[in-house]
Write a protein that binds this DNA or RNA. Structure first.
Lengths: 295, 295
DNA sequence: TTTTATACTTAATTAAAACTTAACTATAAG
DNA sequence: CTTATAGTTAAGTTTTAATTAAGTATAAAA
């Protein structure tokens, strides 16, 4: 089925409603010659004249008047259809997809602040290792730790982080150099994605022999922290995840070593989600909150 | 106001309804690569995916399903709008714009035949010298005598004609040469548009001295005929207009002279009118009727 | 009355969008 | 395991739509 001359009809509708080719041209961000031509072509295709040309103005013919209301409805429908795509189906609930480690170590301890800052919004946390499918799952926005390349999605950098040496207070003396102390304790290793380089760097700095020194491998940053708090040894963890335990005196970090993460924290979602009020509000809140705990 | 991506939406609607880019491509008379690209671009512009690509098939996402019904309505409206432009507002009445001379001398005498041939149609005759404005006046079709160039309108040649010498029976002896007889009588001159050349030709042929011989000038072919029937003199008239009077014995024509008219008879109307059943029927009737009275 | 300014038309050129071709991918069916 | 199918992608070409510039007609201003 051949398509109707949609562009011409859009130009016609604009010109008809404004009663002027010139004004239509302005509204359409083109020259009025373009409008004139499109409407001439449309009239040829339809085989009838839509406008009667008078000097310095145009008036709708009977046929133009007949056609206009249909186009009005039609383009209105299209507009409504497109609006539903952009609209937020549930404007008061923020469905957040977030890594379990970040959820338990950073977000949950700050729920009170969130409720205080944004009392009108409900926060629903969906902790998943993999970034949720925004088409399938009912997710509004994700917080991810990575390089910012999330295929087809918009991502916004919200924070950086660094890896530090954490341990139960007393396990290691922060006032003495690391080198001599580390070898006496278990290294609790988080098998996260970009930790390896940092571990190599640490071994390099301290003259250790690499992986061999790792006595406990755990594929979950939250459990690594838990084991560290329990005094199982020392670990290489992100400073932002450890801030809460630090404040509570459950952990200490050694000032000698830190490693800037290659990965960073991003807000991730389809572009249109970033236009929703609740997402804008959440974004502003989390940026402020992250800033307030900047190292 | 920038226009929505109408072409992309049309492609999407087609593909969504057919459930396949390949079938959509066939329906749209393009390659499926074109469909694939258009829909990709549309998805980029909307910032969401409309189809989930599976191997060898595509399925609508939730958003695609949400959008489709709006487009369905919208394009349906456009279709209806365009239909009204093409539609015949009054399918049983033929509003005919015709020259007064042709109306009175040719058409009116054949009304009985028309009613007989097309009993379901009402004929409304609008006799005007100038071709009616199809936008303003409620005219379905015109019969004109001219060159066929009717700005922006479709015209179809339906008959030719020739000018002949007509007179009251007995006024002139058809068996004797014209030359000697004409100078004894008034020449009733119709100031129609292309009669002048014929008159020069006649004068040339007969060795007459041109315009001077015209004793009666009338700007209306029907009145010229009337005057001729009344015995006021001889005239130069179109054979088709005089056929009726000939048949009734009111007039005679001289066999010695005839002049092929440069002008011809045309059906004239906006192109779409020619698609209407009533116009097709009228066209067939008048062509048949004109043929049956061909010289 | 003449001049100027305006709204539109038209033709030629330029820019942009859309289409086709062809090479590639993944997989269901034979 | 091979083939055929439905779709993707990139490069090149064609088509379409835009701008530019010159022209028309006329209402309003000088």
């Amino acid at each position: 089925m051949k398509s109707p001359p949609l562009k011409g009809l859009w130009y016609f509708k604009t010109a008809a409603e404004l009663g002027s080719f010139k004004q239509a041209a302005e509204a359409l961000f083109v020259t009025q010659a373009a409008v004139s031509q499109q409407i001439r072509i449309l009239e040829q295709q339809l085989g009838c004249t839509l406008f009667e040309r008078q000097t310095r103005k145009v008036v709708l013919t009977q046929q133009g008047q007949d056609l206009l209301p249909y186009l009005h409805k039609a383009f209105g429908q299209i507009d409504m259809g497109l609006s539903t795509l952009k609209a937020d189906p549930n404007p008061s609930t923020i469905n957040l997809s977030v890594l379990p480690s970040f959820a338990s170590c950073w977000l949950l301890p700050r729920l009170a602040q969130f409720k205080n800052a944004l009392p009108d919004y409900q926060l629903r946390i969906d902790p998943t290792e993999q970034l949720a499918d925004f088409n399938e799952d009912d997710i509004d926005i994700g917080i991810r730790f990575g390089l910012g390349d999330y295929n087809g999605l918009k991502s916004e950098l919200i924070a950086e982080d660094e890896l530090v040496i954490a341990y139960q207070p007393g396990l290691i003396n922060p006032n003495k150099p690391l080198r001599s102390q580390l070898s006496k304790h278990n290294f609790i290793y988080d098998e996260g994605r970009d930790n390896e380089l940092a571990w190599f760097e640490l071994c390099d700095q301290l003259g250790l022999s690499g992986h061999a020194s790792s006595n406990l491998k755990i594929d979950n940053a939250a459990l690594v922290l838990q084991a560290t708090v329990a005094g199982q040894g020392f670990s290489l963890v992100r400073r932002r995840l450890v801030a809460q335990s630090l404040a509570l005196g459950q952990l200490e970090i050694h000032p000698e070593f830190s490693w800037q993460c290659e990965f960073r924290y991003y807000l991730v979602a389809p572009e249109r989600h970033f236009e929703w009020p609740k997402i804008k509000a959440f974004r502003d809140w989390i940026i402020t909150e992250l800033k307030s705990t900047d190292p």
